[in-house]
Design a protein around this nucleic acid. Sequence first.
DNA 1: TGTACATCAGTGAACGCGCGTTCACTGATGTAC
DNA 2: TGTACATCAGTGAACGCGCGTTCACTGATGTAC
Lengths: 236, 236
Amino acid sequence: MTSTTAPRRRARRGEGAALRAEILTAARTLLAETGSDDAVSIRAVAERVGVSTPSIYLHFADKDALIDAVCESVFADLDAAMEQAAQTVPDPFEALKQRGLAYVLFALSNPEQYRIVLMSRAKRTDGATDVLAHAMYQHFVDGVRLCQEAGVFARDADPVAISTSLWAAAHGVAALLISHPGLVTEEQQLAMADQGISAAGLGLALLQRLPADPSAEPCEDIVGVLDAAFGPPSAG
Amino acid sequence: MTSTTAPRRRARRGEGAALRAEILTAARTLLAETGSDDAVSIRAVAERVGVSTPSIYLHFADKDALIDAVCESVFADLDAAMEQAAQTVPDPFEALKQRGLAYVLFALSNPEQYRIVLMSRAKRTDGATDVLAHAMYQHFVDGVRLCQEAGVFARDADPVAISTSLWAAAHGVAALLISHPGLVTEEQQLAMADQGISAAGLGLALLQRLPADPSAEPCEDIVGVLDAAFGPPSAG
DNA sequence: TGTACATCAGTGAACGCGCGTTCACTGATGTAC
DNA sequence: TGTACATCAGTGAACGCGCGTTCACTGATGTAC
């Protein structure tokens, strides 16, 4: 199983942290390779690292702490991917879209890691994971705020609410394609992400420009308005 | 644990199906009550029904078959909820929206049942479950087709692709709120579903009316176009 | 109507498995003298 | 420079647990005569 041929050397006095990092890497690798979070057991991780099972407990209090640390590192990577995608894009709306695309791309490239941090029961409500998740979310909210200042979204709207809606759109594409990979072909996946994200952003911007009046059948009207403003639809 | 006080009576000769139904109900109840699919073990279901563990195997070949049957009944209920919500709505776009709302509502009311059929690894690719899932999806695609005929969506577009995009939007709201219930308050959940679904539908209709030309920065332009057509945005 | 018998719904006890976790331990590393 | 010792990274074996599943069985039900 282990690719290292040499028998492990015991760490020097202060070097316990090295094994800790190795354990974390092994857990993430195992997650990615097996495509199942059931496979991430203390025993499997220990075997992968090439160390005895109880050794894990020298570095993590229990299994929850290990999984927590995995989530932490996944969140950090996801945040980095999004920020990198957005950093060179001047237009704030386009930057938001790039963030969304990077988000879905990360999810599709790391399906089990995405699954474990964002699709499983969120019983872990404390610890460093939340801090990192919050940091990532804050970056996104900041991006939304820039769009509000640019006039894409209403200035008096709640940026967090807008962010949550857009997040849901990206999450929808990501989660759906992860749970049901056979739904569309691989090249269609990116197109679907693009379409889902664009539609959510544009749709929200459009919604905010419609009268808030909840009269009986607003949807019937709006199609006429769209046709008048843009002409009839065509596949694209 | 069991609420029935009388000791179980053994089924008559041809009445084995009654226990089968009881087992199914118990499995779904257990899923809903414990809020965890780990709790749905053969043993727990048997105890809930008030029957010995091996009895389950008289009615289901193995655990997979039991879970499969649970999924089947959940899909049937979900489909029924959506069709009921749409059946009295004449406008096809509004009917589609009602289907989406019913979908999210069902998911939020039956989070673990939704989770098990639509958020877990889809290893079950055969059997009756797929038939039912496909039937449900077909109903939705039919709704999209009606919208195409009504001119909401492009007539030459692929109805399945449109359906998948809209499904992803609804799934995004549902899955996000199920995994992260503390994200918004309960009354905000419905508003979020409404917004997410409306934005996806409108956004897609809008996207299909924009030039397919992928020139450099289309997003910058479209906001100006929206402002010209509808005025500036306001929180809604 | 009465009795022997086949059927089959349901049972009690046990199987092997992998899991998280604990415990007393080993033995290389670094330090004090 | 050499030696006794404290430290602590890592180990082997075992714990109890709940799981899915199997097996030989029991005993009520219905049927044949």
